[in-house]
Design a protein around this nucleic acid. Sequence first.
DNA 1: AATAGCAGCGACAATCTGTGTCGTATAGGA
DNA 2: TCCTATACGACACAGATTGTCGCTGCTATT
Lengths: 333, 333
Amino acid sequence: MADSSLRLLLMLQQIPREPRYVSSQQLHARLADAGYSVSLRTVQRDLVKLSSHFPLIQSEPSGQGNTGVSWAFSQHGQHMAFPGMDAVTALTVSMALEHLQSLLPPQVLQHLEPWQLEAEERLQKLNSSKYQSWMDKVRVSPQHVLQAPQVDAEAVGLIYEALLENRQFCATYKGKSERVIHPYGLVQQGRTLYLLCRFYDFEDVRITALHRFEKVELLDEPIRPFPAFNIDDYLNTGAMQWALPDPKLISLELRVNQWLKNHLEESPLSEQQLLVIDDEQQESYLVKAEMLDGRQLRRWLLSLGSDVEVIAPKGLRDWMASIVKAQADRYLE
Amino acid sequence: MADSSLRLLLMLQQIPREPRYVSSQQLHARLADAGYSVSLRTVQRDLVKLSSHFPLIQSEPSGQGNTGVSWAFSQHGQHMAFPGMDAVTALTVSMALEHLQSLLPPQVLQHLEPWQLEAEERLQKLNSSKYQSWMDKVRVSPQHVLQAPQVDAEAVGLIYEALLENRQFCATYKGKSERVIHPYGLVQQGRTLYLLCRFYDFEDVRITALHRFEKVELLDEPIRPFPAFNIDDYLNTGAMQWALPDPKLISLELRVNQWLKNHLEESPLSEQQLLVIDDEQQESYLVKAEMLDGRQLRRWLLSLGSDVEVIAPKGLRDWMASIVKAQADRYLE
DNA sequence: AATAGCAGCGACAATCTGTGTCGTATAGGA
DNA sequence: TCCTATACGACACAGATTGTCGCTGCTATT
């Protein structure tokens, strides 16, 4: 039994989803590799058996030369996993995906749909008898003001594949003519995905937004090797405003109000954050923390409006002052 | 074969992870429900067989009265799923989880670890032969300045369970004495999880941060029913600053610079956003869009600093002006 | 156009594995 | 101490699994 059941399991794992297919002979070879030396006939029989219990489909003999029948999981058949999700995991998955819905393009997220289905099924099963389901109990606060850029699902899939397999691809960018592109890295900022790549034989690395690609076609050519390229080094040069040109640890000192102080007590700026009373009458407090200066920090400081006042370092205070001054002048008119 | 292999699969799905156990007799009953009428002996034999191929562990007979042997998946044994992840899905899962790492408390995320492992394994398998793995190719920009609040993993798990099963629980809040709590809803804002609940017999709904709970203990008592409670209604009253007290659609009009204009072209404020040139010389543009006013929008406007100027509606412009004025006064000293 | 080669599929027999039943040992509770 | 419940070993039989072989239909090559 051990042999046959385990073999079936391994086969199920090896069968991909619909756009891809696997032939009975490929499976036979893989099983042989894994130590299951069975005859090809058995594999064929197993596939037929499995297909009566799982949503397997077999490809039409539309291939070129390859007359072998190929198999795949039906596109939207639910997936199975074990150990099954427990209630807590299901809730976590469900919340996480709700979160991601506002963070990643839906065309990317569709790949996670099976898990969402599994989680929701599990939650429904748990709560079907209860009068109130989890959907009426859980909410995730939206984090973003802007709409997500529209991405072409197929394009994203192909570009991911090119990146993973170190292959060139061919696409139009911003609706312009076709280009040959060598992908080197992928960076996600907010809801936007950026591809770091080179065009044709050019030497310079370009930052391209994934949603601007269209008509992507994978090429069989491998990318030009680029051993000097290191994504961290590249980002740290200040490209993409990833960090300030000179990212440095600063000793931040802020004056904050009561509300922000409470907030910081629970979500500190750093592990060694210091919080002291500044002026009890006015309910103002001082916060000190060592942290990395950067774009994120500055946006955060700005977003707090008058809840916060930067005291040190001087450079940051001056920067805040200049921004605020410019704004004030504008709104005075 | 069909019978036995499918039965084994169903068994694997029914076996939970380590903190929970299932006895051979429970399994026997569940299988009988599912239409597999086999003897208990067979179930026991199957479990032994499975345990030689999967990381199953059996509980010590430490239970009370229940001498039956119970089984569970070992805590950190990888999980299996089929159809297996394809490359694109694996990359998506991996990026999504990296994202979530900065969004959800690690203690909550640990439930998703199996998927992360599966995805990374898959990616490694794909790229082991290549000179550069995906880890060196993909980066996710951090979104948060603050550290996540520290959450007790066990507490979160138990509270989730209580919420899902409509049960009371008992816990200390903010280190104070023990309370009996009736959970009604869960809200996630940023990286903080809030529980909407009532204490003891009190009638008022309280907003409690999950990370402030300690020593949680599930009770068998069901929560007091609360048919009048509706999470959306509650949030829309303005509680938790979820929305402004009077959330209304406004006709937003902004003056933006070149950089922000480019950004908005790709990530618009709304579907029907209007973008026109304001002053070609100074590279300033006007944006108009109908959208919901709220906390998110205002924080976003503030975070942009002098890249943006609010023109309409008047109320919002005045609000911006007052904040900016207050800040400017402060920094003048 | 004909044929060689390949892949799939049906049939069959030998084997072996899965399953129910029964009996015994062990542990905990009354 | 006895009793009940559970686990577990043994055994026999039915049924499933698997390799082999041969036939059929298709493709590609000569």
